[in-house]
Amino acid sequence: MAKPMTKTQLVAALADEMGSDKKSAGGALDAIISVITREVSNGGAVTLPGVGKFYCRERPERMVRNPATGEQIRKEADKVVKVTVAKALKDSVND
């Protein structure tokens, strides 16, 4: 498995793709992250065409097991962020 791309590498690749400098590419990436974070934390969803959909899902209260002791404990209801990968991205990986 290849090492994940760092933010610095992503900004450099984005700047190259945009034909722009790294500062404006970094600003664009930070703006996208900010919009996704704000929208999902407010209960909305964001779809990036060709990449996927980011959304918040509520999980109900449930019983879980402590792996160290085997004791069952009740876990409160919580929210988690989910990402559904777009079919186009899945297909590009399997080609």
Rank of each mutant, 00 (worst) to 15 (best):
R59F: 03
R65A: 11
L48H: 00
K87L: 05
S20Y: 05
T69C: 10
D95G: 14
V83T: 09
V35K: 13
K75Q: 14
M1C: 07
V93D: 06
L89G: 06
R65I: 12
E76F: 02
K87V: 08
K87D: 01
I33S: 12
S20D: 07
K82S: 09
K90G: 13
K3F: 07
S20L: 06
T47P: 01
E76N: 09
V35H: 11
V85S: 03
K22V: 00
E58H: 14
Q9T: 12
S41N: 14
R74D: 07
M18C: 07
A77S: 10
V40L: 07
G27Q: 10
E39A: 02
I73Y: 13
F54A: 00
D91N: 12
G43K: 03
S92R: 15
A28S: 14
N66Q: 10
T69S: 13
V64G: 13
K53L: 09
G44S: 09
A25Y: 00
G27S: 08
S41G: 07
A2L: 14
K79D: 01
F54W: 05
A15K: 00
G50F: 11
M1A: 13
P60S: 15
A2R: 13
M63A: 10
Y55C: 03
R57L: 08
A28P: 01
V93K: 10
V40P: 01
L29F: 08
K79A: 04
T6V: 08
K79S: 04
A13V: 07
A28I: 10
R57P: 08
A31G: 09
L14W: 00
A28V: 12
K22T: 07
D91C: 11
E61P: 02
G52D: 04
A15N: 01
A77G: 02
V51K: 02
T8D: 12
Y55S: 10
E58P: 06
V64R: 15
A2Q: 13
M63I: 09
T47F: 08
Q72R: 15
V51S: 01
G70N: 09
D30V: 01
L10C: 04
I36R: 06
E76M: 03
Q72A: 13
R62D: 05
P67I: 04
G52T: 00
A25N: 02
V35G: 05
M5G: 04
V64Y: 03
G27T: 03
I33T: 15
I33N: 12
A86P: 03
K7C: 08
P67T: 09
